[in-house]
């Protein structure tokens, strides 16, 4: 029987500017939850989560004792947490079996990052929060960490991954959330194959979401989430919250699909979400740009001949 764990975090302001909104999360037990956000929000989240007694926090820059060997370090962590886990088991999990007597200072960055995850396995708390578990790791380490996270799940722990890189969050998570100033959004992540079957059935379903592909996974965005769409060298990129996602549809198809949602083809290779346009910038008499109202300053070009049409839509 799976019960739900609830976490609430209050909003956070600096000098009246909203840094992080109020968050209410329902966590399913024995799952891996990924939260994707920017560095400022992650820093705030780690501080808040660390003070929760149910949560064990593993920081990105937790230090290691350089002069201990791997085996000695495991013994030390076991002593601190009063744990009774077989050293061999941990060494196997993190793939250090034949290197147990190597001093930590001799390890590579990726290996140190693997080692810092040991406390997650042996502490008693039900929720493990890991900041940036995959950042800058080599391929082999990524695989090891991934297996390690799955074994945490087998130990009936809930794992929360925090990262400012969408790829890293998608890699391991069962549920993916995106945290921005409006709050926490759940992303619909589907494995690629089921979607292919759906397509082949050719049923005329009215489907409004925009499919994009990242890391062998297909992510579906609601049209209002999208800031703008760009076509570069034949590849269509959908921009959401400063991150870009390749899309397999063409700009013309997208234009047809998105026009009812208030999107506008402002340039031969751009479609913009008019709801997010803040300012029309006039550079010279013949050159214009649209400034978008998003987390980062985004500027989208506007063709001269499209300006007339835009003015008609806006009503000036």
């Amino acid at each position: 029987m799976k019960t739900n764990l609830a976490i609430t975090i209050d909003a956070f302001f600096i000098e009246g500017n909203l840094i992080s909104p109020k968050i209410e999360m329902q966590l399913e037990e024995e799952s891996i939850v990924g939260i994707y956000s920017d560095v400022a929000k992650i820093n705030f989240l780690t501080k808040q989560l660390a003070s929760n007694p149910e949560i064990h926090m593993e920081h990105r820059e937790s230090g290691l004792y350089q002069r201990l060997t791997i085996n000695e370090y495991i013994n030390f962590v076991k002593g601190i947490y009063n744990a009774t886990v077989e050293n061999n088991h941990l060494l196997q999990l993190l793939d250090f079996v034949d290197r147990r007597n190597v001093r930590l200072e001799k390890l590579t960055y990726s290996e140190k990052q693997r080692l810092r995850l040991i406390p997650c396995y042996i502490n008693e708390k039900p929720i493990q929060v890991i900041e940036e578990p995959f950042q800058n790791l080599d391929e082999h380490s990524k695989e090891t960490v991934l297996n390690y996270l799955l074994s945490l799940k087998e130990k009936q722990k809930t794992v929360i991954l925090l990262s400012n890189n969408m790829e890293n969050v998608l890699l391991a998570s069962d549920f993916v959330f995106r945290l921005d100033s409006e709050g926490l959004h759940k992303l619909d992540v589907k494995e690629e194959e089921p979607l292919m079957i759906e397509k082949s059935e050719l049923t005329p379903i009215r489907f409004e979401k925009i499919p994009t592909k990242k890391n062998e996974k297909i992510i579906l965005f609601n049209p209002p989430e999208i800031d703008y769409i760009e076509s570069v060298e034949g590849e269509v990129l959908v921009y959401v919250g400063g991150e870009r996602y390749p899309c397999s549809m063409t700009l013309n198809e997208l234009e047809q699909k998105l026009t009812p949602f208030g999107f506008f083809r402002c340039h031969r290779s751009y479609i913009v979400n008019l709801q997010k346009v803040r300012e029309i910038i006039t550079w010279t008499r013949n050159s214009y740009s649209l400034s978008l109202h998003t987390s980062e300053e985004n500027i989208v070009p506007l063709s001269k001949n499209k300006l007339v049409e835009l003015k008609r839509i806006i009503g000036i």
């Binding site: 064990h56 920081h59 937790s62 230090g63 004792y65 601190i80 947490y81 406390p119």
Partner: peptide, 16 residues
């Protein structure tokens, strides 16, 4: 040295 290597924070977050 615990402060220098950032290990004191991990220790303080542990049950110790």
């Amino acid at each position: 040295e615990e402060k220098e290597r950032n290990t004191l924070r991990s220790l303080m977050l542990s049950p110790a």
